[in-house]
Simulated scan of single mutants.
Amino acid sequence: MPNFIALTSAGIELLLAEELVELGATDVAPKVQSVHFSCSFETAQKICLWTRLATRILRHVVQVSGSSKEKIYDGVLGFDWHPFFTKTKVFAVEFVGTDKSIRNSQFGGQIVKDAIVDNIREETGKRPDVDKQSPDLIIQARLFKGQCNVYVDFSGPSLHQRGYRKAQGAAPLKEHLAAGIIRRSGWDGKSSFVDLFCGSGTLLIEAAMINKNRASGLTRRQFSFVKHPEFLVHKYEAIRDEAIAQEKPISADIIGFEIVGYVLDIARENIAMAGLEGDIKLAQQDAVKATVGKDVTPGWIVSNPPYGERIGDSITLLTLFKKLGFNLKSNYVNWNMSLLCTENTLLKLLKLQKDKEYKFKNGAIDILLVKYQLTEQQCEMGNVTSNGYF
């Protein structure tokens, strides 16, 4: 059974491992920013189509014991590369890792590239073209602890690119990170989902896709596995048709608030691009005043509010979080809530007891996802009347 590696962001590894098991993978082993697993070729195609948490899927083809230039060259040269080049005219090599023998990735990549070129030239008498800018196929070598493992790209361009983000706000979350945050929040996929700081709408769109059971990769034009020798069009079309048949109508209230008008317009454009018009409700409203109304049953609030590394000056943020805490305790009793932040200082102004917290990375920024249960006792809710917007 083929072996694969799924790449992702820091903090998502265990969630991705769970997702891969759900999608049919075996021998699942989380690593740093990656998960190793095994599955059939067809299951790997299904994973590419469905995964919400992986950014890339690579297929393992060669393991080289040793890290010297000679051993890596001989190990790569000895593999039968010809089947991968029957549909490939141009390729590129990525190299990850260094050691005493391979002191920079460029040198390591050159060794692997030379071995593949020599292999194909010996087999066909022709030299394949190399182009880092627009390759048909990407081959990645990963050097770690004296072993060089070589992979062939299976998924293609980053899987976080769902194709619906026409534009973005000032501090966007990548789609796979948004999906990971939603999963870590504990949302059941069925109850009400509210984002008080919806920005360009990424959390809302990912939540709606989860509720509708829509495969995240349906809008992608092509995956790299079409270049692999085992690929059969009719089998992939059957996998895709099955995914389309499993989609359901929206069955939860998915609600977003955003105070800035032009940012809300971006959210509307992205929602339309995702084909989710009518499935997500939006309102231009300040988060410190936003309420959903009594007809919306308590569910989950999942939001990425402004924090120090992002938007807003410190005085504005202090006022925002104090007022936000009052709104939450007044109008969101019995809700679950998960908020992103860089550290807990601002969240202390909410005057709420946190339940759990988890570490993630948003690009280069270390962030926390802090969870709360807004119980009646926690909120100490008085006789506060709220005005509904929906």
Score class of each variant (00 low, 15 high):
47 I>E: 06
362 N>W: 02
266 I>V: 15
218 L>S: 10
169 G>M: 09
192 S>G: 11
107 F>R: 06
236 Y>K: 00
373 Q>L: 10
14 L>Y: 11
244 I>M: 13
316 T>E: 08
298 P>I: 04
340 L>F: 11
1 M>T: 12
204 L>I: 11
76 V>S: 15
5 I>W: 02
79 F>D: 08
50 W>G: 03
189 G>V: 12
258 E>G: 06
83 P>N: 10
144 F>G: 02
239 I>W: 00
25 A>V: 03
69 K>C: 04
95 F>H: 14
312 G>V: 05
163 G>W: 03
238 A>Q: 14
217 G>Q: 08
153 D>Y: 09
146 G>L: 14
19 E>K: 02
163 G>H: 09
210 I>V: 15
388 G>P: 09
295 D>I: 08
234 H>C: 08
151 Y>L: 07
299 G>H: 08
94 E>M: 01
215 A>F: 01
47 I>N: 07
80 D>S: 14
112 V>D: 12
45 Q>C: 13
63 Q>K: 11
57 I>H: 03
255 I>N: 11
136 D>V: 10
272 A>Q: 15
42 E>Y: 00
130 V>E: 03
292 V>S: 12
90 V>A: 03
130 V>K: 00
347 L>Y: 09
194 V>W: 09
352 L>R: 01
350 L>G: 07
150 V>N: 14
372 Y>E: 02
8 T>V: 04
45 Q>N: 02
121 R>M: 12
257 F>C: 07
140 Q>I: 09
131 D>H: 05
113 K>G: 04
